[in-house]
Design a protein around this nucleic acid. Structure first.
Length: 226
DNA sequence: GCATTAACCACAG
DNA sequence: CTGTGGTTAATGC
């Protein structure tokens, strides 16, 4: 456990801004900050859900094991809550979270968290905002994966990593080809092929996991027309 | 039919 | 884990 001062924490979520002095003190007593290394499991599907997890820094994947394969639901960048739905909605985790790079996660006592929702309207409202945004972006992703062809979906993931996660045209893939397949619902082979196709067409440059987007416009075209 | 798309398999780095 | 090639099944023109 690291030094813990919730009020001074620069990484706290929008909702936590609305806590008062007393609430901060209680929060500090009922939460811990834990570092995770790349690849470590933050919490696991089917285990008992004991805490609300808040990703303070780093990157994580939310994933479930389906009937046949592993399915990655989404990649989450800090700062963000990791799975409010599974913490409050059920006693058993409905999915797993795994660190994709070195991360810090704050675990908060679920009962306390629920208390804040009951007693602090602004806190609750901010939380609902975040949940709503998540649901809307999930809807968009459902549409994408059900209607796009593979190049469109690979383009979408590259754009997402570039624009939303790394905010740069140059970045290093945080996940393997096989995991990209699990993310967009296709095979690792197809991902490989599309990636080399993109590279041959000079849309991206790729060696190992280093990606450089050369033709952003083209990539957006492929993303949109599927 | 023929072309396209993508999954599955296998084998080589 | 990745890249490639061959094969197969489904779909569309």
């Amino acid at each position: 456990m690291s030094v813990h001062n919730c009020k001074e924490c620069q990484l706290k979520c929008a909702a936590a801004k609305y806590l008062n002095e007393d609430e901060y003190n209680v929060l500090e007593e009922h939460s811990v900050s834990v570092p995770f290394k790349k690849g470590e499991i933050i919490f696991k599907q089917d285990a008992l859900s004991l805490n609300v997890a808040y990703l303070k820094s780093g990157l994580a994947k939310i994933h479930v094991h389906g009937p046949s394969h592993e399915k990655i639901i989404k990649i989450v960048k800090a700062p963000s809550y990791l799975g409010i739905p599974t913490m409050i909605g059920d006693k058993i985790n409905q999915f797993s979270a795994t660190a994709l790079e070195d991360t810090t996660v704050c675990f908060i006592d679920t009962n306390l968290f629920v208390n804040f929702i009951h007693t602090n309207g602004k806190f609750a409202y901010e939380l609902i905002l975040e949940l709503s945004r998540n649901e809307l972006s999930d809807y968009q992703r459902y549409v994408s994966i059900s209607q796009k062809q593979i190049p469109g979906m690979v383009a979408e993931t590259l754009l997402c990593l570039s624009c939303k996660i790394y905010e740069s045209c140059n970045f290093s893939l945080p996940i393997s080809r096989s995991e990209i397949g699990d993310l967009i619902g296709t095979s690792r082979e197809s991902v490989s092929r599309v990636l080399t196709d993109f590279s041959n067409e000079k849309i991206i440059e790729i060696n190992l996991n280093e990606v450089k987007i050369l033709n952003m416009e083209r990539l957006k075209q492929i993303n949109e027309k599927g």
